[in-house]
């Protein structure tokens, strides 16, 4: 017959958790590297319309964004409430778009230059007047690939 020993020496040793922080740090670094913080601070209201047929923009390096919307509350005092165009970190006029496209092209490498996609991130309350003006400017700048920013309707 087996004897039950009760001398306490046969306890399973506690699993060392010393490497747990390492694992978690690894996860942390992954997330820090994989995600990007928004590179421009939005100065305009930007709630995009919804559409069913949206496609994702795969190559991030080709995308340059143009924001359009009403200035947010903190800028309304100095810029009014009419829809404005935001390029990078400043409010722009229609004439600035050409220059903006030039500089965006300059910052890409040779083979990407002609494949630039202009991502038009336009607030859904904006009227078409300003949108068509922008499209016209883009045509003049010969940057013809555009993406009407829209969220996927679920």
């Amino acid at each position: 017959m087996a004897k039950f020993k009760k001398d306490g020496k046969r306890e399973v040793p506690a699993i060392s958790t010393a490497s747990l922080p390492d694992i978690v740090f690894m996860l942390l670094f992954f997330f820090m590297a994989a995600t990007t913080m928004r590179e421009v601070t939005l100065m305009v209201q930007n709630s995009m319309p919804e559409a069913e047929q949206t496609v994702k923009l795969e190559k991030k390096s080709l995308v340059s964004s143009i924001y359009v919307g009403r200035p947010t509350a903190q800028y309304q005092g100095s810029y009014g409430t009419q829809p404005k165009i935001q390029l990078n970190d400043y409010f722009a006029n229609l004439q600035d778009i050409n220059l903006f496209i030039q500089s965006e092209r300059e910052s890409r490498n040779e083979e990407d230059r002609n494949n630039l996609i202009n991502n038009l991130k336009i607030d859904k309350d904006v009227t078409m007047g300003i949108v068509t003006d922008i499209k016209q400017e883009l045509r003049k700048a010969n940057s013809l690939r555009i993406n009407y920013g829209a969220r996927k309707k679920l």
Binding site: V24, A51, T54, V55, L57, N119, N147, A150
Partner: peptide
């Protein structure tokens, strides 16, 4: 580990895996 988890949770909450989507079009030349 708790401290690391806290940091991890913070980054998970603040970052967005933001993929741009929309309707692609090609404009006619000017």
């Amino acid at each position: 580990a708790d401290i690391a988890f806290l940091l991890l949770a913070f980054f998970l909450a603040t970052t967005t895996m933001n993929v741009d989507s929309g309707l692609f079009r090609r404009l006619p030349p000017y």
